[in-house]
């Protein structure tokens, strides 16, 4: 258990370091302007990048010292350790959920708002264990009509329109 937590901390620390590095690299694109002040447009970003890198280093070091790299963690990682948070889903499962959102963003400008939102509701419901029957179909279609009514008809907000709708 302890090792697994340390492993997570190690991944976190490395991720923090990576963010700091990427961000620092992107500060190179900030133009130097005579309209600027002494601090400059890139002043705070540089400080932030160094601060985050420092924090990342400490976090990584602490995780290593806590035994993240010791061989003892191997069996612990394999055994299905009881999660402290019982509602936690596995990473692939969560990424799968997110994929429906991404698919919606990609599809909506081709097939239009109404069909896309119906597909989204239906697909997520099936993914989350709704029965594969006409009821789910009706709920997805009805939900899409409801949202279309609220956003497009009542609020009068544009929703993405596709090639056909």
């Amino acid at each position: 258990m302890r090792e697994q937590a340390a492993l997570k901390d190690l991944a976190g620390g490395v991720a923090v370091l990576a963010i700091a590095g990427l961000y620092y690299w992107a500060t190179g694109d900030i133009a130097e302007s005579t309209l600027s002040d002494e601090v400059g447009a890139s002043g705070l970003p540089r400080i932030l990048a160094f601060a985050l890198a420092g924090l990342g280093l400490i976090l990584t070091a602490r995780a290593v010292m806590a035994g993240a790299l010791s061989p003892a963690h191997e069996p612990a990682a394999k055994s299905p350790a009881p999660e402290t948070d019982d509602e936690t889903s596995t990473l692939p499962r969560a990424l799968g959920f997110l994929a429906f959102g991404v698919a919606y963003v990609c599809l909506v400008s081709f097939i239009g708002y109404l069909p896309a939102i119906a597909l989204l509701i239906g697909a997520v419901a099936l993914y989350e264990g709704a029965p594969r029957n006409w009821k789910t179909l009706v709920i997805a279609a009805g939900g899409a009509l409801l949202y279309w009514g609220i956003f497009v008809k009542i609020l009068g907000v544009h929703q993405p329109s596709g090639l056909f709708f």
């Binding site: 429906f100 239906g122 419901a125 939900g143 949202y147």
Partner: peptide, 13 residues
Amino acid sequence: AYLAGFILALILS
């Protein structure tokens, strides 16, 4: 199961 779909759709809309 249905709620999750409706919430995600509500957020994205």
